[in-house]
Nucleic acid binder design. Sequence first.
DNA 1: GCGTTTTAGTTAGCAAGCGAACGAACCTTC
DNA 2: GAAGGTTCGTTCGCTTGCTAACTAAAACGC
Lengths: 191, 191
Amino acid sequence: MARHPHRATSSSPRPAEAAFREFWRVTGLLRRVAEPHFARFGISPAQWGVLRALSRRESAGDAPPRLTDLGSLLLVRPPTVTGVVGRLERMGLLARTTPGGDQRSRCVCLTDEGRRVVKQVLARHPRWIGQLMAGLTAPEQAEFLRLLRRMIAHVEPLAERMDGQGPAADRTRAGPGGVKKTGGGVDVTSA
Amino acid sequence: MARHPHRATSSSPRPAEAAFREFWRVTGLLRRVAEPHFARFGISPAQWGVLRALSRRESAGDAPPRLTDLGSLLLVRPPTVTGVVGRLERMGLLARTTPGGDQRSRCVCLTDEGRRVVKQVLARHPRWIGQLMAGLTAPEQAEFLRLLRRMIAHVEPLAERMDGQGPAADRTRAGPGGVKKTGGGVDVTSA
DNA sequence: GCGTTTTAGTTAGCAAGCGAACGAACCTTC
DNA sequence: GAAGGTTCGTTCGCTTGCTAACTAAAACGC
């Protein structure tokens, strides 16, 4: 790290690269802080994501979401939803129901126990978040939020684009020449 | 730290909370973009982290790091290091060596094949990063970097503090009263 | 009505993160 | 030198994310 803040912009080789690196770093840190926090309520961050989404929908008066809806809300894929919801169901915090219309979709709603947990977490939430973000002043937080939103707006389409393509090299037990399998359509990065 | 009784924010949609939420969101997005990218070289983001760290140390002329060193560089725990390094070793991208002195530590260094991969990734790196961060202008990137660093500086001690304590409720098959096991030292959040 | 395609969700299998528990080597202290 | 503790790394078992492959129901096409 250690690069003097003074002449940062001019001499610093690549702010973009550094930003990415630090970002990745914070990602890990964040998980490591969030995990024990939610563990105190007996849940994981991912489970909290589901519970909070359900709770919000409930208080908004909306119908219980299907698994697919949850997936797009939380930006995770169907198998992940199945897993997390399954565990929450086993814990008794939510219930799968099969609504009338479509016979292949399942809806998910909170149990009383689930609502109880949400309440408990929410009671501490502002305080906890405040603690987490206390490294930034209020205006900085606002700016941070703005930048994050711009990042999302830019990256989300990129992520979606990756969906359909680019399975790539199978190094697992590739010989010395393993990599070049990328050949052919090298320029996925395009312009 | 949290000394701002700033209730101006309370009525608005809470920037701190929103920032946290969006941050979590970008975290997922970032993984989804990085994974297929590195897959094109036959590796994963975590593996890239290790390879890059080794490469840097090498070109700085430093001695090959021990597994523990890698762990603290990458902010991951020993079992994770074991796993990632093990897979990289099986792929033939790095080698474990047992240096003279301490018989219980292992050092890790790149193989030629590993160096080759690093080179390939680096060749594309600026371009890829540029694409990722293209949602922000150069000054915004610099500001983003600055905020990230402040976040790290603030959160890292928090994460470390969590290390020794707070295992928490075992909901897995907890009865209706599962949560209160947190009892006793409720105020881990302290003040 | 029947065949095809699309959509919802699950399953299997892998990587990466963690905590807990452990063996082995090292260090400290008597 | 032996006892006790610390440190390094591994293994086990778990959650969460993914892809690929699959089933079942719905929707479309003719």
